[in-house]
């Protein structure tokens, strides 16, 4: 076993390696663009990217695109949560229905759902509707599958003992089923949220009129590389913030 001091030293060492790695990467980027003559059309200069980033935040021009993307995400996630949890709960009430529907959903989940995008674009147009449809479809499956798993595989003993102690249907749901199922459902919701965010930004990249993904493509086509890198950093930051918020909500929900 490592002593405490030794372990601290080891973790400080790996921290140092991580920091050195990231700093080295930035330094390499700086040197490559400034001294080795890598074309700025392929790789913009890091300092310039930083100032573009500051400019984007200061002028607030991201707000419209951010609103579009977040609106699509919120709609898609709300629809898939409602339908996924409701359907999952109804199916989980019977072992037979679980055996009928669970393999069906799992089977469809194995198809890369991004394939539906051209179809949705054809049916719903280039606007936000096609993104909402894709985000909903893609996040529906993890949510419904985890709801089925959460409600469907509650330990029989708990249900039987609650019933024998005279629990009503509501009490059974509130004090036995829900606490047992909630952590699993929350995990499914987090997975659904992550893939919905990914697919919405992805579909904005592929075919859209507005949104953060659309903005990045627009700048790429205009060869405005520094600003495009700044926007990429912005989107990655937004995604990181959203995922952190959702993960901590999940952790909070699990603890209760």
């Amino acid at each position: 076993m490592l002593g405490n001091g030794k372990r601290d030293a080891a973790s400080a060492g790996s921290r140092a390696v991580q920091v050195a790695f990231l700093v080295g990467l930035l330094l390499l980027w700086y040197v490559a663009t400034n001294y080795w003559g890598v074309s700025h059309l392929l790789l913009p200069e890091p300092v310039q990217v930083f100032w573009q980033f500051v400019d984007i935040i200061k002028t607030g021009e991201y707000i419209d695109d951010l609103k579009v993307t977040l609106g699509e995400l919120a709609t898609a996630f709300a629809v898939s949560c409602t339908t996924g949890v409701t359907l999952g709960y109804l199916i989980s009430r019977s072992q037979y229905l679980i055996r009928v529907f669970e393999p069906l959903f799992a089977g469809i989940y194995a198809i890369p759902i991004i394939l539906f995008l051209p179809l949705y674009v054809l049916m719903f147009g280039l606007g936000p509707m096609s993104k909402v449809a894709l985000g909903t479809t893609i996040s529906f499956f993890p949510i419904v599958l985890s709801t089925i798993a959460g409600f469907g595989y509650v330990e029989r003993t708990y249900i039987v003992s609650a019933r024998s102690m005279g629990a009503s249907e509501y009490q059974l749901f509130r004090y036995v089923l829900l606490p047992a199922a909630l952590p699993v459902i929350l995990t499914g919701m987090r997975m659904g949220f992550t893939v919905a965010l990914l697919s919405i930004i992805g579909s904005e990249t592929i075919a859209s009129l507005a949104g953060l993904g659309h903005r990045i493509v627009h700048l790429a086509e205009g060869m405005d590389m520094a600003r495009m890198f700044a926007y990429i950093a912005f989107v990655v930051a937004i995604a990181a913030i959203l995922n952190t918020v959702v993960s901590s909500l999940e952790a909070g929900g699990r603890r209760r």
Partner: peptide, 10 residues
């Protein structure tokens, strides 16, 4: 964890 779709144009 980073969404790689953002760098698809790159």
């Amino acid at each position: 964890g980073t969404p790689q779709v953002t760098i698809l144009p790159l």
